[in-house]
Design a protein around this nucleic acid. Structure first.
Lengths: 325, 325
DNA sequence: TTGAAAGCGCTAACAA
DNA sequence: TTGTTAGCGCTTTCAA
């Protein structure tokens, strides 16, 4: 089965080399021959075998991407933005999930390397333990870190300035009159958790109050319970991300604590559901389209010029004030 | 650059054929030789070129998947479940987005076929217009439709019984005392929108009240505005999915309409955010893990036996009652 | 501008 | 159980 380039070449009355050149749009083919080849391909319903082309040309037109958790709308939106950019250029996305486990992440990256992806977009799930596999990959193909990053690894990265984002939140809550703040965040195993915690500590100053769990709504609910049990509620809750914040809001509502009257609550990321909660959630917006566009731009530069220097871009995120503060 | 199977074979002192057999775990290799090959591969840090293997063996161990919109948490969760299943078997997922546009979907499916994916998992974005590309793909490789389906296309499909789900919602609202219902759904361009609308019409009987837009929170907000403008609010709102329902809830809250005291609201899908809204949303749960598992099972059966008959599975979804009703 | 020919790295048929 | 050999379908020298 299957029409090959030989069939097309035969029908067009040229060699396979000419057929190949014509179809890949190279110059150095007489217009007349090019048209004959294209016509033959159409008539025969020719479908090029890109696997064979990849073997010979050593490029797969495929980009690998590993994210911690696709089901997280923040990452899903990022994937969607990347995918949109790539398809402008006829490339495809091989997607994998690390479940926030460095071992799984390592397996996934190796699988992508085995598949000879042209480049890798990695959201490294761990500040330290993702370093090894990142180095392995970076030694072979262009790699860019997205959103999260590995400590002290001098490779390209695109994301937001998390510290600046948290700083804005703290200042906003203070301006709204909050005197006693608490930070409900995640254990600093990934770089965003770390940077947001650092940012909070620096902005809130001494005597800061911090509860650390993970980036889940369940942790948000649990943390709110803890705060309620402690008896004296703070007057401002800075959450490590929107999912936590939504958990906090839910738990507070269940206990008849009014937001923003009794306590102010803010999140981070601006996922689509932040706007839908009641009260709508004040949060820090990550410009995902912009992050994705910049990432693909940097990758293309590396792909075009192997010696291109690593480039990092930290975008300053925007505070979105809604009813919860 | 690059260690090839020839290097491994030379080091192990066997032929490339034996090396290949040993590494792919085929029987018919003496244990002693197998160990030598495996040791040589490890020592040389051999990375098999799966592109070359694919060209020769005509199988890529890659599954293509096209979804309408990855950013929709319902689809994202489905992708994650599928990905988890596949990786048990060392296969990867080539992911593409159709943006609910049949033309884009067609391009994406063709690209996946060009890449010689072993099978295709398609969530067809249109009841009718997805038919053509589905047929093209099904003529070449095993294809399974997930969640959505094309009208009258006799191929494998896995999803939920949407009519039964809506039926449960309507009965529940009626039992809660609702007399006048309205359905806020999506134009029936995809099969779920159609089935849920049909289900509603059949369950609610004559004089049914129906507003149709798309599956977005914006449409939910707009529909709620429309209902408020009409003056006499119904006492039960059946929404086509959770995203619409969350939009409806938000708009009602902004207008001081109390849920469930003034009006009951229910959704469909049970996305993670359904539970987080206040009031928490009553909805119909789609068992995504189960859908994914069944889909991969059917695909594997087709892959193992080319003549396996198409198989469709409609899972009856479960009503999850929360505070909104 | 074109064609002949040589692989890309692997697996599978065949023969031993 | 093993090795030899012939491709998979394409791109890319190289020479004309």
């Amino acid at each position: 089965m299957g029409v090959t380039i030989h069939d097309v070449a035969a029908r067009a009355g040229v060699s396979v080399a000419t057929a190949s050149r014509a179809m890949s749009g190279q110059r150095g083919v007489r217009a007349e021959n090019r048209d004959k080849v294209l016509a033959a391909a159409r008539e025969l319903d020719y479908e090029p075998n890109v696997v064979a082309a990849s073997l010979r040309s050593r490029t797969t037109h495929t980009i690998g991407m590993v994210v911690p958790r696709i089901a997280n709308p923040f990452f899903a939106t990022l994937v969607e933005s990347i995918e949109k950019r790539l398809h402008d250029g006829q490339r495809s996305l091989l997607l994998a999930n690390s479940h926030y486990e460095p071992e799984v992440e390592q397996r996934q990256v190796r699988a992508l390397l085995d598949r000879r992806v042209d480049a890798l977009i990695l959201i490294p799930c761990h500040r330290e333990r993702s370093g090894e596999v990142l180095a392995t990959a970076a030694a072979r193909i262009p790699v860019i870190q997205l959103d999260l990053r590995v400590d002290g690894f001098a490779s390209s990265w695109v994301g937001v300035d998390n510290e600046a984002g948290v700083w804005q939140v703290v200042r906003h809550l203070t301006e709204r009159g909050a005197k006693r703040l608490v930070f409900v965040g995640a254990q600093p195993t990934d770089s965003a958790a770390q940077a947001r915690l650092d940012g909070y500590r620096r902005a809130a100053g001494d005597g800061d109050d911090v509860l650390l769990g993970d980036f889940s709504k369940e942790w948000g609910q649990q943390a709110a319970k803890l705060l309620l049990q402690r008896g004296d509620l703070p007057d401002g809750i800075v959450c490590g991300n929107d999912t936590i914040a939504l958990g906090v809001l839910g738990e507070l509502a269940s206990n008849d604590v009014r937001v923003p009257q009794d306590v102010l609550v803010a999140g981070f990321d601006d996922i689509p559901y932040a706007e839908l909660s009641r009260p709508a959630l004040t949060t820090v917006r990550q410009p995902q389209e912009q992050i994705a566009a910049e990432a693909v731009r940097i990758l293309d530069a590396r792909l075009a010029d192997d010696a291109a220097a690593p480039r990092s871009t930290a975008i300053t995120p925007e505070l979105i004030v809604r009813a919860s503060t």
